[in-house]
Simulated assay, not measured.
Amino acid sequence: MENIKETVMEVIHSVLPITLVVTALQFTIIWLPMELFIQFLIGSVLVSVGLILFLLGVNVGLQPVGEMIGSALSKTRSLLMILFFAFVLGVVVTIAEPDVRVLSTQIDQVSNGEIPQSILILSVALGVGIFVSLAIFRIIFNVKIVYLLAVGYGLVFLLAAFTPPTFVPISFDSGGVTTGPLTVPFILSLGLGVASVLRGKSASRDGFGLIGLASIGPILSVLLLGVIYG
């Protein structure tokens, strides 16, 4: 019951400010048609209800399962199995991420189908999957995250020089949308589960950083997509 109350308050604190700002602008500056403004208010209520149910589902189901999967994979002591399933889970959870679908739909509309929605989603998902595996590899072999970040962003800037300008902003937005409400809890829980089982690993030190690494993958994959399409 306490979890439900906290989730409701969290959503209210997230949605209420933008609703109040738009309402204030409505009656001072923008003066939208009343029908459109009412649609906005109804949409805000629906978004709030949807977010409450969504976050409850994440807290009740996804986070515990992600941590248990990470723990179970680590206990197998099979490096290939751990990295393979980390890749698969990274791909699957990204495909299910609502933010990724919103971005791909908008890009498909703006580009008039030149950048297909399915291709963009797949490239972003593959990028996340590869870098989630790399992040788990870092936890297992205690590789310093600063090295991986330096190499990753070095490749980003290198590829950006050979990619059509249209794809550069799309690639960075693709990295941003992977830090959504579905991907973040699951991947973080996966990393914490892996770190909690391996001897000598600290959950606070080694279990985090996955999202920072995972967000590089979509940037690189979309830049590569730009090189191919360009």
Rank of each mutant, 00 (worst) to 15 (best):
E35F: 13
A125Q: 00
S174K: 01
A214N: 08
V49M: 10
A160C: 07
V128E: 07
L103A: 00
V92K: 03
L25P: 06
A195T: 12
A150K: 09
L56R: 11
I38Q: 15
I107L: 01
I139S: 06
L134A: 13
M68R: 15
Q26A: 08
R205I: 12
T76C: 10
V100R: 02
V60R: 12
V8Y: 12
L182D: 03
G193N: 09
L134G: 09
G152P: 02
T105H: 04
L83S: 10
G212H: 01
T19F: 13
F162E: 11
S104F: 03
L220H: 01
F85V: 13
F54M: 09
I187Q: 04
M81P: 06
I187S: 03
A203P: 14
E114P: 03
R77V: 10
L182C: 04
I216K: 04
G217Q: 01
V15H: 04
T163L: 00
L55W: 08
V151Q: 11
E6L: 13
M34F: 15
L36I: 15
I216A: 02
L210S: 12
T76K: 12
A125T: 07
I121L: 02
E6T: 11
R101G: 04
A125D: 02
N112E: 06
A161Q: 14
L149Y: 09
L36K: 14
I29P: 05
L79H: 13
L51G: 01
V100F: 01
T23I: 12
A150E: 07
M1I: 15
L223F: 01
P218G: 03
P17F: 05
V58R: 04
L159I: 03
V93N: 05
V91S: 01
V100S: 00
M1H: 15
Q26V: 08
G127W: 02
V184Q: 10
G200S: 02
G191D: 07
